[in-house]
Design a protein around this nucleic acid. Structure first.
Lengths: 117, 117
DNA sequence: GCATTGTGCTAGTACAAATAGAACAATAGG
DNA sequence: CCTATTGTTCTATTTGTACTAGCACAATGC
């Protein structure tokens, strides 16, 4: 499990952490039943507050990627399969956008627009 | 030109307005050389501040979708073609995400992650 | 010249992120 | 059964940023 964050980035720490976990899922490095390191443990190793680490985990729980239970930790659900599926489709779209010079902000805005309608 | 915004939405007004213009572009309703209504005009008809309308236009300028000039207004550039291209690819990905129950926030986060790497 | 249109500057308000401390509840394992 | 582990809940503070807005200014077009 490679979890990285960049304290200098403008992206919130908890989002970076969640994204880092998703990336592992997209690459197929996570399987149903796998257990993520404890929030307290992650907080120490990344030098962030426990609440921040927990918030990332709670975000992933809201998405359904992990189950959270006291004493047991964060366990990957069966939904991890969907993430690796999208892990193939997404790079294609991103490549197209980059080719024609459409930025991240614009692309994500267009997706939100499409999703909402 | 159908420009709509929802004051009740949590999405910033200027982003909604910009998205509304992009949507027109994606649908092929805008062509190179077309002129958008004046910011002050849009502000009045949508009942928002001029700065808010202007900020939307400046966002579109930064994207390269329009050229902005004093006294002349906002003119659509040749990049509009790319927007209608993506207007076909994006719905496919969004449909896939919806099928497997992946939300907007998650999807856009994954795209940012992919874009950045 | 004069109206139109975008730009710059300034500022108030509100919201979100991150940190912190403390107490609590469920689970796992010896 | 007991204990350590792990997430949950609550309150609070600090800090930074986003959004909106008002006013004066500058460039363009007719």
């Amino acid at each position: 499990m490679l979890l990285r964050i960049d304290p200098a980035s403008s992206v919130p720490l908890f989002e970076q952490l969640a994204a880092s976990v998703r990336a592992e899922a997209s690459r197929g490095n996570l399987r149903e039943g796998d257990r993520l390191p404890a929030a307290r443990e992650v907080a120490v190793s990344l030098d962030i507050n426990v609440h921040t680490a927990l918030r990332a985990y709670q975000l992933l729980r809201d998405e359904g990627l992990v189950d959270l239970r006291r004493g047991r930790g964060a366990v990957v659900t069966d939904r991890v399969a969907h993430y690796s599926e999208l892990g193939e489709a997404i790079p294609r779209l991103v490549a197209s956008a980059k080719e024609v010079g459409v930025g991240v902000q614009t692309l994500t805005a267009m997706i939100r627009q499409e999703y909402g309608s």
